[in-house]
Design a protein around this nucleic acid. Sequence first.
DNA 1: GCACTGAATGTTATAAAATATCAAGCAATC
DNA 2: GATTGCTTGATATTTTATAACATTCAGTGC
Lengths: 153, 153
Amino acid sequence: MLKHKHDHDACIETALEAAQKICEERETRFTPLRRRVLELVWTKHEPITAYEVLDMLSEGQKRVAPPTVYRALDFLIEEGFVHRIESLNSFVGCSDPAHKHQGHFMICTKCSNVTEMNERSLHDVIKKAAEENGYSYENSILEIAGICENCRN
Amino acid sequence: MLKHKHDHDACIETALEAAQKICEERETRFTPLRRRVLELVWTKHEPITAYEVLDMLSEGQKRVAPPTVYRALDFLIEEGFVHRIESLNSFVGCSDPAHKHQGHFMICTKCSNVTEMNERSLHDVIKKAAEENGYSYENSILEIAGICENCRN
DNA sequence: GCACTGAATGTTATAAAATATCAAGCAATC
DNA sequence: GATTGCTTGATATTTTATAACATTCAGTGC
Ligand SMILES: [Zn+2]
Ligand SMILES: [Zn+2]
Ligand SMILES: [Zn+2]
Ligand SMILES: [Zn+2]
């Protein structure tokens, strides 16, 4: 769960190192571009849009084109380092990249912070509900809107 | 739950009549445009995009502009006659318009049919999970991808 | 070293989805 | 029939995402 105050530089660094390590294990290529995009996603530490990434990526150099960003994001999502928030057309770093999974989120409608829920039990309930309705389960998007603890105080 | 075979004309008519009745009760305006858009949504009976509605709406007359469609859809969503499927940028008629609610869906990845789950228990589990994580619950998007019973046979 | 290969990135153009803004029409009330 | 507020029309633009093709780059075999 996202803490509102924490050592954010360390937080970014941890995410980058974890990604690096996983890519080595999987023999996938954690290129400088992909690394940089993942860094930018974590730097915001709130849902970030592809075009926000694009703008940040373009600072101090020739402007990059949308496919550059979308391809990097696709890779990061594929590897499970980033999740897409459908209801916001945005992207957020995964809090548990070591285990590939579909993210389930809570989104604060006041501060825009997003909290990833890694609850096996909830996942199981959803899967069971699908099967009871005759569907074989593939994956699920769960995005809960609400007000976070900080914002209520 | 959506049946793959049913009297679809009657199905559309039922939805339109229900909407009409609810609007009369609420004293909101079920205008010809709004009625027509709801009819088109039900006519497809699968998730339909705003621009598909736009194309159908434009047949045999001057092409309508996007805001016309989005405003009608906004009204229908507000009234609870239509739900938006975030993961598909699409819209679908609500199976239970009499009770305002957030829809929870299962989407068949083969035939694109969508089934609305009206399960109080699942809703409660999700709400409880949010509250346990410190969030006050406002609403939630649940979109489960899988293969429907028909497509597995 | 040098050619070959496939993956990654660059580049240009376009598609798809949604909204901002202002004008015109219409319906209810007075 | 004038006023008011809601609805729709119309124009332009923004935001989000992808198609298609060219170039670069890293690894492999020679
Ligand atoms: Zn995750
Ligand atoms: Zn908050
Ligand atoms: Zn519904
Ligand atoms: Zn199916």
